[in-house]
Write a protein that binds this DNA or RNA. Structure first.
Lengths: 236, 236
DNA sequence: CCGAGTTTGTTCTCGCAGTCACAAAGTCCG
DNA sequence: CGGACTTTGTGACTGCGAGAACAAACTCGG
């Protein structure tokens, strides 16, 4: 009865809401943590607590994937982990390249969370001559000009940009040109990419500014409540 | 006529939607970029393009702050910049401490975007003895035990956590205990904090996994469209 | 001084996301 | 073997956010 877009065979889900997609990795991490503690099964309440969300929301999110729980019992940790990993698509490793091996790029290259969660850094690229050939996190830094060649050879579809803002758009253009269709951008710049290419942005100073806004309001409120007293007596 | 919560003198705004708050820093950056190019005024259309959003959304967002534009003309770049900065609360610098001076912590300490956008890193803390006294980004790494003392002395209300996941909750607890009320968390762990404390989370592997999900779907769709052809002929 | 043109600020509508509450479905004990 | 209990999965409701469209307000040229 849907918009007749074929293949209604064994995938009753499809079209998982974006908000849910963003939480699935959180659930996956919580499940991994439970598995590490040798917990074989858990209720939605427990898993929700471990993931830091509401249990109803968790159940609804999981229901988009299918019915992988058992009523009256809960979820099997390993089984659910696999199902989520399969849905996200991290049952096999994704090759990733990092462009811009400054402080942040080096930190990312060394970040174990990438390799342990379905991603494998296959190349580090930097345009600066003095970076060439240096070894970072066990990988040799290669010239930016090699981008297309590496992407083609390693079948890379995900790229990380950690260059200064002015260079970000050029790097993005080159990535798209080379065939990359998903970009994680750490540069504080707006990227223009053609349709079909996904960009996610991580912006450190924006996060801090959002905190600052709330902090300002907290301070203003605190001041307001003291306002009645009009304390100005530092004359003692 | 609002819910009579005092002080209806010269602040007609208050209660800015969270989604808008998250975009204000983006607008601020776009404005800064325009100012750097000596552009004194701009329309909502231009600013929206620079910030990568819809112009209607931009105008709506700005309207929460007040009427700082001129109909028929547009916005004065400097004036609007100041108003946004004032609303966010970054007209003066916020002192920030960073706990966990590993690869990521060092990258954050060296990140110029912090200092140039309303934040000043006042201390770097790490629990590891071998880190003590080392100089990173012009600051000496101090023992984690000094946390409370530093927070009190420098009036710090914002803390950054860049320690491994297992230590994150302990660090958060200590921060809250010391009086910090806003936390930017880079550790892949769920933090439990009391009400009144804001936590924002930046999780690198989650961002990648979200990209992977979309990438999987792209691959699946591509396969689907080729399915009709059933190309298996690599026999040549 | 006035009208045409431009751009903001706001209203309205639609869709997505979060939460509550409950029926369905399974387990476990007597 | 049956009933009480537990927990999932889902339907209904509410509220926020995005976008389109329009009225208000300002500028500028004659």
């Amino acid at each position: 009865m849907n918009t007749g877009a074929g293949s209604s065979a064994q995938e009753p889900h499809r079209d998982i809401p974006e908000a849910t997609v963003a939480r699935l990795p959180v659930y996956l991490r919580a499940l991994t943590s439970l598995a590490d503690r040798n917990i074989a099964s858990c209720s939605s309440e427990e898993l929700a607590a471990a993931a830091g969300v509401n249990s109803a929301k968790l159940r609804k999110d999981l229901s988009y994937l299918g019915s992988y729980g058992t009523r009256g019992v809960g979820y099997d940790v390993d089984y659910l982990s696999y199902q989520i990993a399969r849905e996200i698509g991290v049952t096999h490793d994704w090759p990733v390249i990092i462009v811009g091996i400054g402080n942040l790029g080096q930190a990312l290259a060394n970040f174990s969370g990438f390799s342990s969660r379905g991603f494998r850094t296959v190349a580090l690229l930097d345009a600066a001559p003095q970076m060439q050939g240096r070894s970072v996190a066990g990988l040799e830094v290669r010239p930016f000009a090699d981008l297309a060649e590496i992407v083609a050879a390693e079948q890379v579809s995900i790229g990380v940009i950690s260059v200064p803002a002015p260079a970000a758009q050029d790097v993005a253009d080159a990535m798209v040109e080379a065939g990359i269709s998903s970009i994680l951008n750490f540069a504080p710049a707006v990227l223009n990419v053609p349709a079909g290419v996904d960009v996610r942005k991580v912006d450190l100073s924006i996060e801090l500014q959002i905190l600052a806004y709330h902090e300002s309001r907290k301070a203003a409120e605190a001041e307001e409540t003291v306002d009645n007293d009009s304390e100005e007596g530092i004359t003692a």
